[in-house]
Amino acid sequence: MTDFRWDKLATDGMSRRGRLHTAHGPVETPAFMPVGTAATVKAMAPWDVAQTGAQMVLGNTYHLMLRPGAERVAKLGGLHRFMAWDGPILTDSGGFQVMSLAQLRQLDETGVTFKSHIDGSTHALSPERSVEIQDLLDADVTMQLDECPPAGWPHDKVADSMRLSLRWAERCQRAFRERPGYGLFGIVQGGVYDDLRRESARELSAMDLPGYAVGGLAVGEGQAETFRVLEVTCPELPADKPRYLMGVGRPDDIVGAVMRGIDMFDCVLPTRSGRTGQAFTARGPINLKNARHREDTRPLDPNCDCATCTTFSRAYLHHLIRSEEMLGPMLLSRHNVHYYQALMAGLRGAIERGELTEHAQALAEGWHAGDIPPIDA
C-alpha cells in the first residue's frame, strides 16, 4: 500500500509544485478541496465534482459525528463508500466549531463538550475522540483537534489557546492509528502574533507529523495580515511536508498564499456563491441575479470549458436563479468548482515553468478588468 508522503516536484520562489500520496490516490498540489461538510459537496453529485478536476474533498468531524454518526458510517463501509467518492478525503477535526458555535460548547483541558445545534443533545469531543471519529470515517488526512481563536483576542489569551492546541496535538499523535496512506496534520495557531506563530510552528515541526495546516486565519484579520502571518509561519515548517491553509478560498487569496508556500486549500465559497447566484470568471465575479443578463446569449465565461459554459447562456442562468429553480445553483456551483480547479492547474503549470509571478499578474489584471457588458448594454 502507498506510504503517505508529499513529493516536491518544482519550486518558484516560495511556491511549491508537489504531489501528495494517500491511501485513495494522489493529489496534485497546489490543490483546492471542495467542501463536503455533511458527506456531500452541496448541489453537486460526486461524479460532477470529479469531472471538475478535483482530486480530494473535505468532510467535517463535528457534523458527521452528529448526523449520521461516525459508527454508522463505519458500519456502512466508510465515508468513501457512503458518499460514493473514490478519491482522498480530508476531515476537519471539529476545531472550527469550537469557535463558530461558542455559545453551544464548554471547553477545558480535556476537550470540548458541545450541545448539538440540531437537537440540543450533549456530545463530548476530546482530541482522542476526534481522531477516533476520523478513523471511523476512514479519512486519508486526519486533522488534530485544536482551538481556533477569533480575531481580536489579546496576546496572552491567544498564547494560552495556542499552547492548549499544542498539548492536544500531542494527544492526537498518540491516539492516531498509523497505517500506510493515512496521515495526521498538526495545526499552527497563534493569531496575528509573530512570536506565537513561530512557537507553534516550531513545536509542531519537532513532532515530525506527516503534514501541517495553518489555522486561525480568514476569521476577520484581512488579506494583508493573512499574507504577513504566512510569511512568518511557512519558513518555520518542514520543507518536505505539505502545508494546508484552512478555510481560505477567494481566488486572489489562494494565489497570494501559493506564492508564500501553501500547498492545499479548502473553502465553501465556490458552492455557497453558486447557491446565491454568483459565478467566478477570468474577469472577476458575476452576479447572475442582475437584470443586465436577461437577454444575454453569451456563455457565462467564454474562456471556460465546463458544461455550464459550453451549454447554457447567461440569459438562461439568470432565469433559473431569478425563478429559484434548483438547477441554477447546481449549474453555477459546478462552474465555480471547475473554475477553482482550472485556477489550481494554472498555478501548478506556472510553478513548473518558473513563471508564477507573471501568471499571477495576468490573473489579477483579468479580475480587475471586470466583466464585459453585452453589446447592446
Rank of each mutant, 00 (worst) to 15 (best):
7 D>S: 01
229 V>N: 00
229 V>L: 10
357 T>H: 06
224 A>L: 10
122 T>F: 12
136 L>N: 04
145 L>D: 05
361 Q>R: 14
180 P>D: 01
319 H>A: 01
209 L>N: 03
37 T>Q: 09
371 D>M: 02
304 C>S: 05
46 P>D: 10
256 G>F: 03
118 I>T: 05
60 N>T: 09
287 N>Y: 11
352 E>C: 04
119 D>N: 15
163 R>T: 13
175 A>M: 00
124 A>I: 11
250 R>Y: 12
41 V>K: 07
195 D>T: 07
195 D>R: 14
233 T>I: 10
4 F>I: 12
281 T>C: 02
365 E>H: 10
206 A>Y: 11
74 A>E: 01
199 E>S: 01
207 M>G: 05
188 V>Y: 01
152 G>E: 03
299 P>N: 07
322 R>E: 13
377 A>S: 15
73 V>W: 09
194 D>K: 02
224 A>Q: 15
76 L>I: 00
58 L>N: 07
223 Q>Y: 13
11 T>M: 07
106 Q>N: 13
358 E>Q: 09
46 P>R: 08
237 L>C: 08
178 E>Y: 10
57 V>F: 12
79 L>E: 09
108 D>L: 04
258 V>Y: 06
49 V>R: 11
61 T>I: 05
289 K>G: 12
122 T>G: 10
324 E>G: 15
50 A>W: 11
319 H>T: 00
262 I>P: 15
9 L>M: 12
350 A>R: 13
198 R>K: 13
225 E>W: 08
266 D>H: 06
320 L>S: 09
53 G>P: 00
245 L>A: 01
258 V>G: 08
15 S>Y: 04
28 E>M: 03
